[in-house]
Design a protein around this nucleic acid. Structure first.
Length: 416
RNA sequence: CGGGCCGUGGUGUAACGGCUAACAUUCUCGCUUUGGGAGCGAGCGACUCCGGGUUCGAAUCCCGGCGGCCCGACCA
């Protein structure tokens, strides 16, 4: 695609109303637009990256056998009153609105209730279980204080998976599978080595909940990491008792700042009992369904990537989620570059060609800021020896290849 | 929700209570230039967040509102 036509302009300076690195960089690079505190729009490049993150999550969810659905953001009070989560005293981050026809609706901040309710229409026998459904949907939370750019917004994208089982044991087994799927996702996103399965407070549902915490200086959470076992304990449950229970040696733990990128809750029968979600067993008894829920925030993940994979010049996207793989820069060699772009695109390789009439320095600076994985320079100097220069944004490594081999190089190096 | 700081062209900043609100950048046009945000010239672009007050006179002082950021609290 031609950069001159791209609806996104880079900025030279940091926005004054942001402190978080992820927001500063994403705004400067034209990936997102700030609408108000904690509310961000996704522009073409940002949306491409967000969609790629979603697609990776989707593939792993589908591999698990979960089915994708889309529930509504608008929520009627009745369901939530049954589980005692409608009142502002119980849940303080609802966005609620009056209906002109009378009555009230809220914007969903999570979806245990509607999922349990829908399932009660579809599950009646042990033969219907187990079952897992998920959605990737915008969630709304009326945070008292939004902060950290797109890492903690009032409107954000969330993948929420819910599983339904006949018994706890089945839930436990499924929980391990989801855990593996999450590990796969973090692997593909390039943050697996710094992301830890973490024990956290179970809140009202159970003794523990489980989180996935990614180490980052900008993190809001404090966790205690056991590097060998790749396990951590959130500060909120960091007690001698818990450590003993999880077989963790206090002297081996390291205190780290981190960002919660995913979570798993064993819900048990809290929601199914309240909402009448039950099934008939083989022996003809009626029992409540056992539920689990599993969250993952695509937009937050994007913020985390911006936060930890960037440098002082700008963003650095891993190939798997970069809006495009290649950034073509022409130094007064637009014709050749344009032909290369056409060749790449007809081979199905996404590239951005900086065809703007600006100085070389500005093109380089912007390429660094946008952070596409590879920068290809087409210049008279290189063409004199019939070569192109390819620079890896992350490692800084430079290689030269014959002009005619660009597509072959791309097919070899840019395919997942 | 408590505490602190702050709201000036698209962006980033400046301006003692007093001239036509200044500078840089972006943008437009022309020239020039192309290996790290190059140069010259000419332009476009702001009722200084909103409402009230003090004053001969308010971007500037006072009050209220709204908005932003940070610390804390909160965070299925």
């Amino acid at each position: 695609m031609l950069q001159s036509k791209l609806f996104a302009k880079t900025r030279r300076e940091d926005p004054k109303d942001e402190v978080a690195k992820n927001a500063k960089l994403l705004i400067r690079a034209g990936f997102i637009h700030k609408e108000s505190a904690g509310v961000y729009a996704f522009l073409p490049l940002g949306l491409k990256t967000l969609n790629k993150i979603c697609q990776i999550i989707r593939e792993e969810m589908n591999t698990l056998g979960a089915q994708e659905v889309q529930l509504t953001a608008l929520q009627a009070p009745e369901l939530w009153q049954k589980t005692d989560r409608w009142s502002d005293d119980k849940v303080d981050n609802w966005f609620k609105t009056e209906l002109k026809s009378g009555g009230e609706l809220g914007l969903g901040f999570t979806h245990e209730e509607p999922f349990a309710a829908i399932m009660s229409e579809n599950v009646s026998s042990y033969k219907d279980l187990p079952l897992a459904v998920y959605q990737i949907q915008t969630k709304f939370r009326n945070e008292l204080r939004a902060k950290s750019g797109i890492i903690r917004g009032r409107e954000f994208l969330m993948k929420d998976l819910y599983s339904f089982h006949t018994n706890e044991k089945d839930l436990d087994e499924y929980h391990l599978k989801v855990r593996q799927a999450y590990e796969n996702i973090f692997q593909r996103l390039g943050i697996a080595d710094r992301t830890f399965f973490t024990f956290a407070s179970g809140g009202v549902f159970s003794e523990f909940s489980y989180e996935f915490q990614t180490l980052a200086e900008a993190g809001e959470d404090l966790i205690y990491v056991d590097q060998e076992q790749k396990i951590a304990v959130n500060k909120e449950v960091y007690t001698t008792e818990v450590l003993a229970k999880q077989n963790l040696d206090k002297t081996k733990l390291k205190e780290c700042q981190s960002i919660e990128v995913g979570n798993i809750f064993k819900l048990g029968t809290r929601f199914s009992e309240a909402l009448g979600l039950d099934f008939v067993t083989e022996s003809g008894e009626r029992q409540p369904v056992v539920m689990g829920s599993y969250g993952l925030g695509p937009s937050r993940l994007m913020g985390v990537l911006a936060e930890i994979l960037s440098d002082d010049k700008g963003l650095i996207w891993p190939l798997a989620v970069a809006p495009m793989a290649l950034h073509l820069i022409s130094l007064d060699q637009d014709e050749v570059a344009l032909r290369l772009l056409t060749d790449l695109e007809s081979a199905g390789i996404e590239a951005l060609f900086d065809d703007r009439a600006v100085s070389a320095g500005e093109k380089f600076a912007d390429a660094d800021l946008l952070g596409l994985p590879y920068r290809v320079v087409v210049s008279a100097k290189n063409l004199a020896t019939n070569q192109l220069e390819i620079k890896n944004r992350q490692s800084g490594a430079v290689e030269f290849i014959p002009v005619l081999e660009l597509v072959a190089w791309a097919e070899k190096n840019l395919r997942p």
